[in-house]
């Protein structure tokens, strides 16, 4: 039950943050990547604010034996920097630059621009499914 409350609260804060910060506007995200054009640095401020809070959160986490409302931490422990990581990030950047959208803003924007965001989200789901089929 507590897991469900946290998931909904965290998602809502996340969606609200994306909306306030202007990151649900694909042209603004694209503007951040357009460094040779009319560069829009807003995304750097968003990332800065989010990372700032998370640096504190990680410091708190290091002092905890377990999370406040769950039995144990389930965190990625992979250290390997391999072709999958780099290849995935390169591909992600291509799609991100082309459409100005990444998963969070695309999902949140479903409520305000259901058709455009829906086309992107459905395609993203298809891309994730393709990956699953290739690696199954």
């Amino acid at each position: 039950m507590r897991e469900f409350v946290i998931a909904l609260a965290s998602g809502t804060l996340f969606g609200g943050g994306l909306a306030i910060s202007g990151m649900m506007d694909p042209s603004r995200v694209r503007g951040f990547l357009d460094i040779f054009g009319a560069w829009d640095p807003t995304l750097a401020f968003v990332m800065g604010g989010a990372v700032l809070v998370m640096v504190v959160a990680w410091a708190v986490q290091r002092g905890l034996a377990k999370p406040y409302f769950a039995s144990n931490f389930k965190l990625p422990d992979t250290q390997r920097i391999d072709r999958k990581l780099i290849g995935g990030a390169v591909l992600f950047g291509v799609g991100w630059g082309l459409a100005g959208l990444c998963p969070g803003p695309a999902l949140g924007a479903l409520i305000i621009e259901p058709i455009s965001a829906g086309i992107f989200v459905a395609s993203m789901a298809a891309g994730m499914t393709l990956y699953r089929l290739f690696t199954a």
Binding site: R2, A9, S10, L13, G49, A50, V51, V53, V60, Q61
Partner: peptide, 26 residues
């Protein structure tokens, strides 16, 4: 066109969302 203040405030909320997930649910 930049929105440094809105961006930073929204970023803080995003950070809080991620912190809640980390410290609450691990």
């Amino acid at each position: 066109y930049a929105m440094p203040v809105e961006g930073f405030v929204g970023g803080l909320l995003i950070g809080l969302a991620a912190a809640l997930m980390l410290l609450g649910s691990g």
